[in-house]
Design a protein around this nucleic acid. Structure first.
Length: 413
RNA sequence: GUGGGUGUAGCUCAGUUGGUUAGAGCGCCAGGUUGUGGCCCUGGAGGCCGUGGGUUCGAACCCCAUCACUCACCCCA
């Protein structure tokens, strides 16, 4: 075989595509239920947009972007995530002039030059929500509630919600100092990765997987205790709202999200084996940072491939009704079959005809393999009396029926 | 980017201490007579054994490289 899909990409074949469609429909249903509207933004944007919004220092920007120069020397990048683009569109089209808050959802492919792994691809897909203009904890709660209900509906086993507050530009620096003060003396004891984190992002030391680091981190100061009063209030109000909505959660003081723009709320949905299937948080300075007016925001993104892995059982049952197969018994009836198929389709009944020139037996076999529930046989004998045979492929029972009544009959069965 | 595992027909896998024509099951196609599927029987197509080098009289089996998949890490959805 000569060509293969590029590393980290894959084809979604017909059998899987059905599951994707079902998942997408499910997501849209919940978005509608909460009053979110879809937005579709381009797959590539100016590189600078991601550098500014996601953050130069993040792994995504520093080593995972698919960046290219177009024929007019523009620096462009295949989107690694969609929040930046949504913010750009929000500003470009003045959505802030519409009714507030602005509640958007999106769905589509994202690109990151990562090493492929289970549920991780270079072209992967996300569903996401963004809510602009509302700074209240209720907005965070709504995003989390929608996410929770959507995920619940997929019967993902062992779904867990972890939540934390990462503070704001007022209180985070102080916490960072505290943390560094605690960590500095341990310089020689942590793993090499963590040593780098000291300089880059000390908060990351907290969720290192290394056993030694974990035990050291266990005694580290906790951010919740360092939050400024507004951040503290926001966090406790959100937790109270979740409790009243009976959404189970666990505060994880070590939860840190990788993108620079997060403020206050950070959360993640995890499940058995898959790890994180969705993550999100608040980004109260992102819009401003991108050149807009001060505008609070909160959002979430779901990893579609991971959802499909986690929800497998639920979607195995899905099976679209196959068309009615129109078989011919006798020579020169192909045209008649085409006409009958057209009649059925005009009446809203899915139908297909024989295209391989097989005999009746072969046609029956094909229809059976394809799972067709009904099969129509056009035979010379019956046709002369304007009749056709309708066969139930499950029971094997067949009847003769007047051709004109066929569409009506198939529509009701 | 780092480390480990794997790579034989469409799919799941066999393949003995390197030895000459590489196998099975499932799937696919065609038959088992004249207008009828799903079971059964028979036959057929389909592999330069991931790719490129090397060792050897000889390699699917050994060595090296490369690509891909996979698991863990980094990070993230």
């Amino acid at each position: 075989m000569k060509y293969k899909a590029p590393r980290g990409t894959r084809d979604i074949l017909p059998g899987d595509a059905q599951r994707w469609q079902l998942l997408e429909e499910r997501f849209r249903r919940y978005c509608r239920l909460y009053g979110f509207s879809e937005i579709r933004t381009p797959i590539f944007e100016h590189t600078e947009l991601f550098q500014r919004s996601v953050g130069e220092e993040t792994d995504i920007v520093s080593k995972e972007m698919y960046t290219f120069t177009d024929r007019s020397a523009r620096q462009l990048t295949l989107r690694p995530e969609a929040t930046a683009a949504t913010v750009r569109a929000y500003l470009e089209h003045n959505l802030k002039e519409g009714p507030q808050p602005v509640k958007l959802y999106y769905q589509g492919p994202m690109f990151r030059y990562d090493r492929p792994q289970a549920g991780r691809y270079r072209q992967f897909h996300q569903f996401g929500l963004e809510l602009f203009g509302a700074g209240a904890p209720a907005a965070d709660a709504e995003i989390i509630a929608l996410s929770y209900e959507f995920l619940q509906s997929l019967s993902i086993k062992d779904l867990k919600l972890e939540i934390n507050s990462v503070g704001c530009p007022l209180c985070r620096p102080a916490y960072r100092e505290n943390l560094l003060f605690y960590l500095q003396p341990l310089e020689k004891e942590v793993c090499p990765d963590c040593l780098h984190r000291f300089a880059k992002n000390p908060l990351r030391v907290l969720d290192c997987k290394n056993e030694k680091c974990r035990s050291l981190a266990a005694a580290a100061p906790i951010i919740e205790h360092s939050l400024c009063p507004p951040c503290g209030d926001h966090f406790s109000q959100l937790l109270r709202a979740l409790e009243r909505l009976t959404i189970p959660f666990a505060v994880n003081p070590r939860l840190v999200r990788g993108l620079d723009y997060y403020t206050r709320t950070a959360f993640e949905f995890l499940c058995d084996g898959q790890g994180s299937v969705a993550g999100g948080g608040r980004y109260d300075f992102l819009v401003e940072h991108c050149g807009g007016p001060p505008t609070p925001g909160v959002g979430v993104a779901f990893g579609v491939e991971r959802l499909l892995l986690a929800a497998e059982a639920e979607f195995l049952k899905f099976n679209a009704a196959p068309p009615v197969f129109i078989a011919t018994a006798g020579e020169g009836l192909e045209e008649e079959a085409l006409i009958l198929a057209a009649e059925l389709r005009a009446g809203g009944v899915a139908a297909e005809t024989e295209l391989m020139g097989r005999n009746l037996k072969g046609q029956l076999k094909y229809a059976g393999r394809k799972g067709c529930r009904h099969l129509v046989i056009l035979g010379e004998r019956e046709l002369s009396q304007n009749m056709v045979i309708l066969r139930d492929m499950v029971s094997g029972v067949q009847i003769e029926i007047e051709r004109g009544q066929l569409t009506g009959r198939l529509k009701t069965s």
